[in-house]
Structure formats: structure tokens, C-alpha cells
Design a protein around this nucleic acid. Structure first.
Lengths: 224, 224
DNA sequence: CGACGTCATTGATCTGGATCAACGCAAGGG
DNA sequence: CCCTTGCGTTGATCCAGATCAATGACGTCG
């Protein structure tokens, strides 16, 4: 059995598993396992049936949607502690997007059947799921508002500011996912992303750290 | 008691109340009431606490978000049978958008406390809510993909096509909400919306009916 | 009934970001 | 060690859609 202790340590903190309660959590974890996948690996593809609920333990996963003739975009990025695509699993409906590992990742795989069974036994888990989906809905609302009302530069600034919170404290953020993925998530081309970075640096809102790391001198100045 | 029969008739069909089951439905409806509001009325405002869960019975409600200095957009439109903003009610968190009546409307008002109590008593209702939110999340994903990958004209075409389904059958769609609201929902200006309509008519994908109604000769030809 | 405010349409112009095109530079791979 | 191959950056140009401006079509109210 590959390090169940590390997996639980990471997810115990997450508000979702907190709300689900220890009993349901144990039920979910018993038949689950973790997997390590290289950058570029595909967790599942558009049209697949949702056999597993994936919980990101390390690295980043991107949810990629595509439209024939019009290319692909990144709908959402998931980091450590986040579950991707509860929606499809809950609805027992095929995924409508593809999940790709944007870095090397460690994921917890919870069998879909187990998740659905546990939901219909545990009231806490059901409510935790409801709240999780409610939060996810709000995130998508934010993204829609961003796309409709904010400029490319503002979108990038806010994206980085959110990462500062997550890694709370030091103004050093790392953006381990490829630029193309960030650009797609923010609804712009890699070229525009590159220019937005340059502009934020020029304005002193950002500095380029020693390795590739991004340094935010003043988080408040970043959010427009 | 103001026509409870008409209210139930309308919502009994909705997949949400179907899934919730008759018992939970009755619990929800007993302390609820309907209200009739004129176009332009505000159901709740950004920052308000969610005291009610609103179910649209007739007319259209728009969910409007605003960003200081950058104006407002319409995040989503809700029609008959749809519940707006389960998310805030579930999370007991202030609304992050404003709901406006885009036409004269009839809404069912379910007290937030009642909804939350019933959820924690009825497994079916909890699961129905989870599935509702999962579907809503998917709708927002669709909207994000639309905004990122499709042209203004395509977005309008798809918007109308969806209405054809809802009113299934005749190719006559009515768009009772003001053009400005549709434009905002689709992420474009009223001017661009107007030109998109003109272009679809020019291509024969749309015809202007006797009154202001929109006629779709061939739904399949509309979806790009 | 006429004045006015609101909203849709149409035309002319402007611009943010896309597209097209090099180029630099690290990481494999022979 | 050199030669790919794939990203990210930078520069030049283009275009979908925004913005600005004017006109028309209704309702509503004095």
C-alpha cells in the first residue's frame, strides 16, 4: 500500500474532507489509491465515463475543453487539495472536458462508485459536496466576470494575486505550469501573456526572481 | 393563500423538484409564497444575505455582476422552472451578484432557513441540490468556453438555438428580455448584438416574425 | 397631442488583443 | 558536441468588436 499516510496528511486540511467528517473520509480512502503521473499525462478525456474522482495531491492539473475548428482552452486549473470534476462523477455523465497533468503530479484516485455510494450513506459528505460545488460555481462566475469585464493585464494580475494568498506569506510565487496553459486559462494567447508579464514588471508590480520564480513586492498594489 | 396550485403545477415538472421527492417538496412549499414583480425589480443585491431561495415561475431573471469602473455584465439568465442562486443559499454567504427582473415575473420565495433545514433532513433534496449545482457548474463551463473560443455571431446563434429546444417544436422563439440584457449575457455590446442579428438574418438562419418574434427556419443550420 | 426618455438600429472610427513571423535558448538525442 | 525540437519572448501587422455619434421607433406622461 503506497504511503496512505502522506495522502491523508495533505487532504485532511482541505475544507471538503473536513466537512465530510472522519467516518466518510475513511470510507472514501480505504478503496482508493494514489498515482504519480508525468507532465503531459491525460487523467481522462472528453466523453469518457467518470470512473474516478481525482484529488490533486501535488502538482497542477488543467481542465481543457475543445471546440472543433476553434482550438482548445483551459477552463480551470486545479492545485494540491482540490478535487477535479466532482460534477461529472455526481451526475454519472460523461466528462465534457479533458484533464491534463501540467506538471508531474500525485493524484488520489477515488473510485466513482465508492464516492456515489458513500454520498448516499453519509449526510455530511453529501452536504460537503453540495458546498464544494457551490464554491466551484462561484469560481466560474468570477472567471466569466473577468473575461467579460477585465483586460488581459488585469486578469493576469489577479491570477498571480490569488497564488500569493495560497502560498500565503512570502511574496514569491511559483507558476509551475507552462505559460501556454496559463494563457489559455486566462483567455489570451501566449504572446499577449508574455506582454502582460513584461508590462507588470515595467510597472514594478512584479519582479523576476533568481530562478524562474515570480516575486510580488506588494500584493495590494497588484490587484487593480 | 395565493394560487398554490399554479405554482406547484409549474415546478412539479422541473427535474430538481422531481428528484427532491414529494415529501421534501411539500415541506419546502408550505412556508413559501409567490410574488409578482414588475420588470426592473431587484430580487436581491450583491452583498445581501440570502434570506430566500428564488424559483422563477414566469418571466426572466438576470444575474448581474459588477466591477468598479468597468461596468456590469449579465452572468446568467434564469427562466421558468429554474432556481437562482442555490449557491449563496447553501453556503450562507452573501450574494456576489444582483438579481434583476428582466420582464414581469412571478417568483416562488422559499425561506433560506427552511431550505437549509429541509436539506439536512431529506437525503433526496440534498442529492437533488448537488446535482442541480453540478449542472449549473457545467453551464458556466459552457459559457467560459463560448467566451474564449467563439465569435459574437456564433455565441448569439447558440443562444437562440438553446431557446428553440426549450420551447421545443415551432421554430418561433421569443426573447422577452431587453437586448441590452442579452448582449451583456453574451459578453458583447448592444451594437455588436444588433449586427450579429442582422448578419444571421442576412444568411437566412433567422427571420423576423410578425410582432417582434424571432423565427428559426432550421435549427440545425443555426448551430455552427 | 406633443415633448421627452428609453432602447434598438445603423454608420464611422478606433483599439486591444490576435495573428503572423523571427529569434533566442535551454533540453534531449544522435 | 552539434543538431534538432519545443517554449517563451519580441516585433510588425491585422481585425473583430468596442466606442463614439446620429437616427428612428415606441411608450408614457404632462
Amino acid at each position: 500500500m503506497p504511503q496512505p499516510s502522506r495522502a491523508t496528511a495533505l487532504i485532511e486540511r482541505s475544507p471538503f474532507f473536513q466537512a465530510a467528517g472522519p467516518a466518510a473520509m475513511a470510507d472514501l480512502l480505504r478503496p482508493s489509491f494514489t498515482q504519480i503521473l508525468p507532465r503531459g499525462a491525460v487523467l481522462f478525456e472528453e466523453g469518457d465515463d467518470p470512473d474516478f474522482l481525482h484529488v490533486v495531491l501535488e502538482g497542477r492539473v488543467g481542465l481543457q475543453a475543445s471546440v472543433p475548428d476553434r482550438g482548445k482552452t483551459m477552463v480551470e486549473l486545479f492545485g494540491p487539495g482540490e478535487l477535479c470534476l466532482a460534477a461529472a462523477v455526481v451526475l454519472r455523465l460523461p466528462y465534457l472536458a479533458t484533464a491534463v497533468a501540467l506538471t508531474e503530479i500525485r493524484v488520489l484516485m477515488i473510485p466513482g462508485e465508492v464516492f456515489r455510494d458513500t454520498i448516499s450513506r453519509s449526510r455530511e459528505l453529501c452536504q460537503a459536496t453540495t458546498e464544494l460545488l457551490a464554491r466551484h460555481w462561484r469560481l466560474m462566475v468570477d472567471q466569466v466576470v473577468d473575461l467579460k469585464l477585465r483586460s488581459a493585464e488585469d486578469r493576469l494580475a489577479r491570477f498571480i494575486a490569488r497564488r500569493v494568498d495560497e502560498e500565503s506569506g512570502t511574496g514569491v510565487v511559483d507558476l509551475p505550469e507552462p505559460r501556454t496553459a496559463i494563457a489559455a486559462r486566462l483567455g489570451m494567447t501566449p504572446e499577449t501573456l508574455s506582454r502582460a508579464f513584461a508590462e507588470l514588471e515595467r510597472k514594478g508590480k512584479l519582479r523576476r526572481g533568481p530562478d524562474g520564480a515570480t516575486v510580488v513586492p506588494d500584493r495590494a498594489a497588484l490587484i487593480p
